[in-house]
Design a protein around this nucleic acid. Structure first.
Lengths: 200, 200
DNA sequence: TAATTTCGATACGTCTGAGTTTCGCAACGG
DNA sequence: CCGTTGCGAAACTCAGACGTATCGAAATTA
């Protein structure tokens, strides 16, 4: 077992370095986190940052887009634990997770790329959505649907619209809200405002 | 008056072509509208598209960023006329204006750039915000404040939060809503949902 | 040990685009 | 008509990055 296969017979020769692979992905996310866009992102910069030869990158990914897709796909969403005591609390927890991520430069820059590169590099967006966005979306949907069942939310509530209001209001604050970090009270404020509505 | 100055004495020599300037800005917006990002945007492509020599561009703008700033600043917001009959109607009109713009590739691409390039090219964002976003923001704020005065909206409503909910929900749909054009009913649906709230 | 494959480093030819210069012509003022 | 400035086109130099090839060393199997 110590020197032997795991499924497919090892093809002989020096095995690919797992460490190099990690370093490449990490360097890619690192540069992205510094605000470098996909277009400016150069393989040479990644190789240099990762302490790796360019060959080591090209042996694994045939082009930049493939690498970026894989790199972004590693940004999985760590869904917050939901207490389940009340819909209000769970929604606040979900927004709080978004808020804390919006404080990380890397997350912010990744979102910028995903949102603006959707047309040019469809594949980048697709994998990321499926891996990172969909799970969150599902979680929020479940909370809202549960709220309708328990009577905590209006029975005629349009679930999709409810999600759009909550996520959209949060998104708006991360993009156009006052500069600097978002207030820790913001998630609570948003949820209460969304629940209450604006009409008298 | 026909051949004479308007303020500063003309410095002699052939005057700069107003037409070329327009063509350059138009070509820039044209390329941006095709999804070309700021990084990929090349002066040569702009010159060629505008039917203009590179010199003519460099004589006016010393670098790409300056040109893009000026180009985006020409995208002024054509605020929709507000009937003023009801707050609901006016808010719907404001969202309808956003919806119709979101159907234009050029507007969509400009928004992508403004939102994602905010960190890298601060100046691009700043001028655009001031020229195109602020007027809309003011208009919506006035409508909401009027609604509070007339009693159409809750007296204790947080105006900023109300704006965030409405604009954010619309923004969310333009970015992550179902693909394709937004439904003409969407503005009305958003406003009604925002006014009503989610609680029973 | 021998064969094989990957490793990081480095050099290479190629391409794209920046920014400058030069050209002959056009448009303006005096 | 003359000096000045702008015009589009083209050529130029320069930098950066691409993607490939080659190197000697390292890691692994047989």
């Amino acid at each position: 077992m110590s020197t032997q296969e795991s499924g497919a017979a090892r093809p002989a020769g020096r095995p690919r370095s797992e460490k190099a692979e990690k370093a490449i992905i990490e360097a890619t996310l690192d540069l992205i986190g510094e605000g470098v866009g996909v277009a400016e992102l150069s393989i040479e910069a990644i190789a240099s940052r990762a302490g790796v030869g360019k060959t080591t990158i090209y042996r694994r990914w045939s082009n930049k887009e493939d690498l970026v897709v894989d790199a972004l796909a590693t940004m999985k969403a760590p869904l917050p634990p939901l207490s389940g005591t009340s819909v209000r609390d769970d929604l606040i927890s979900l927004l709080e997770a978004m808020r804390s991520e919006s404080g990380q430069a890397r997350s912010r820059c990744v979102m910028n790329i995903v949102m603006s590169e959707a047309d040019r590099h469809r594949r980048i967006t697709e994998r990321f959505m499926e891996r990172a966005v969909e799970p969150r979306r599902r979680a929020m949907r479940e909370v809202i649907e549960r709220g309708i069942v328990t009577g905590e939310l209006r029975p005629d509530l349009d679930v999709d619209m409810g999600m759009a209001i909550i996520s959209g209001t949060m998104l708006w604050h991360t993009k156009w809200g006052p500069a600097g970090d978002l207030s820790p009270e913001l998630p609570e404020q948003i949820i209460d405002a969304a629940l209450a509505g604006m009409a008298p």
